[in-house]
Design a protein around this nucleic acid. Structure first.
Lengths: 346, 346
DNA sequence: TTGTAGGCGTTATCAG
DNA sequence: CTGATAACGCCTACAA
């Protein structure tokens, strides 16, 4: 059996409650006793039992992480590794612990969350995604469990603290970037439509076109799972159109990688014959040929801020609802070029 | 305050202990009372408090995950996403929870582990890496904490349950694969030397050369952080040698990606002028140009088995020490070709 | 088959 | 400043 507060108390010749106060560094304990108790703790190599403490305090210093289901390969996206780093860093700074739930299906995930929350193993929860019609989200709202979401909640946006990019604007800018380069036929290769990020971006894309007086073609909109088949199908469809696009905005670097490959196989040179701008700016954007121009959305910060604000909320329950927008920035590399009608490959 | 066992007891007109037994589905409770109690639980939407249960049982159904420090970019390697999936799946099946520690420095990580273990917030621990001179490992051994490591412990291998590939053999086979293709000048681009996987593989590489009667050149050995600069430096050094290699074994797909790019820039065609085989077989091996021949080490299974065996150990403390070897397999794609002296580019 | 009571390791309240 | 004592919510002998 591990050494407890009582053992320390005995050795230091004080009451258990005193030891407890020393741990909490209560100002109403004399320095002398504190010293004595601390020595005893050292000698016995005492470490407080967090479980017992949690029970007494009704608080665990743990935050629950809800990942999207890892059916498919979404999860292999470096996005998650990086948010995790941010979350980890943010939690660590305040001595919070991270507890994960995942699952293959939405049901599994939901059950996991319920267990976490009802079981009292976490003080709050962070949703690592924001999708349409999310049972988990509604559940958390009903439970009054403190939580924050990374991304834009599909509902009750005003009542839910969330950390997000301005994806509307980010995509608008990405599209405008292409428009400024002279492109008029720009296709949108988006991710899973069930994630709000995708709909936000689609809106931004539309807006950019409209403002530039460019037509919006349904056929230029393609939705793909983030990583599935690297977007190969998507691109082939686009190229077989009567007027294929001359530029692409792509939801994710990895998909862009797949597209790059497909284009290469088809003999379509990037950026000369097709410009591509993608999102996330993860490591391998520099590794591709050509290096990808990508919108950096500061993934690390998304995680970091999410952790930070959840903890604020936990420590001060009347903390107001907040919406934290993480800035983005287009990182220019070599996958986009000015459109020259002469080079049109059709 | 949440609904407790007492509330249920009251509503069902039984003693709290009875409710507890119903939860545990004790056979010594009549079906009739069970039914009554269960109804009460439903009605009150009762969920057991895991913290209290943990305290009483002296066991949390939680397992601690220790990641390597995320200084640098190691962590962005899809390797971790995938082990995480495996771990998650394995833990989930037995209703275990995953709790993470990371940190920027080894110190931070060590402290995190100590807190986890001494604080009693986890029943056991899984190390997601195996490196030389690891304080965490020695600590866990001294503590008698059940743990398993993914990879090969640098010490006391016989006493530590671990899940690993046969990296010696995997690398030997990879090298032999190249040798069979006629290559005689094969360079080794390895990862961080502090990880045991790197030394194992180096050994396998040596062995293959020796068995084939090929010389072993110090200059052909390059060590690089897994992701850092995509191995660009490494490759340039090799190419500037008097007799540059004609083939490369590379520790990681991502590094291989970087190398591919560098070679492309230098006008060296893969596989015609340089063959490359790498490790891990993650998603983007198919996405590269040319697609990478890679050793699939079944990362998911590494995680899955680790979780499974740790849990076995937790549920049966006298479970013997085990060494689980996950099979590997060379997945041929297009980055290796037969060596033809005529095509030597020097 | 079910109830009573004590304990798991802390914290918090009240005295002193 | 410090010491009893009662929670926290559940489990498990021991009784009945």
């Amino acid at each position: 059996m591990a050494v407890t507060i009582k053992d320390v108390a005995k050795l230091a010749n004080v009451a258990p409650s005193t030891v407890s106060r020393v741990i909490a560094n209560s100002p109403r304990i004399s320095e002398r006793t504190k010293r004595r108790v601390r020595e005893a703790m050292k000698e016995l190599d005492y470490h407080p039992n967090f479980i017992a403490r949690s029970l007494a305090n009704q608080s665990t210093q743990a935050i629950g992480l809800v990942m999207p289901s890892f059916r498919g390969t979404v999860f292999q996206n470096p996005f998650f590794s990086v948010v995790l780093q941010g979350l980890s860093e943010g939690a660590h700074q305040k001595q919070y612990t991270l507890s994960m739930t995942t699952g293959k299906t939405d049901e599994e995930i939901y059950d996991g969350v319920v267990r976490m929350v009802q079981g009292g193993t976490v003080d709050g929860v962070i949703l690592l995604y924001a999708k349409i019609e999310d049972k988990v989200l509604s559940y958390l709202q009903n439970q009054q469990t403190p939580f924050v979401v990374i991304g834009k909640p599909y509902i009750n946006v005003e009542d839910i603290t969330h950390v997000d990019n301005n994806n509307f604007r980010a995509m608008k800018e990405a599209t405008e970037y292409l428009i400024q380069l002279g492109h008029e036929r720009i296709a949108f290769v988006g991710g899973n439509v069930h994630f709000t990020v995708t709909v936000e971006r689609l809106l931004g894309y539309e807006k950019a076109l409209r403002e530039a007086g460019l037509p919006y073609y349904e056929e230029y909109i393609v939705h793909n799972e983030f990583l599935q088949e690297g977007g190969q199908k998507a691109i082939k469809g686009l190229l077989s159109l009567h007027h294929p696009p001359t530029a692409l905005v792509v939801a994710d670097d990895f998909m862009a990688l797949g597209i790059l490959k497909t284009l290469d196989e088809l003999g379509i040179i990037v950026p000369e014959m097709m410009s591509i701008i993608s999102f996330n700016n993860v490591l391998y954007t520099e590794m591709s040929r050509p290096p990808l121009t990508s919108v950096d959305i500061n993934i690390f910060d998304l995680g970091f801020e999410a952790a930070k604000h959840l903890i604020q909320k936990l420590e001060n329950p009347k903390e107001p609802v907040k919406r934290i927008i993480i800035p983005h920035k287009i990182v220019e590399r070599a996958s986009c070029s000015r459109y020259k009608s002469g080079k049109d490959f059709m």
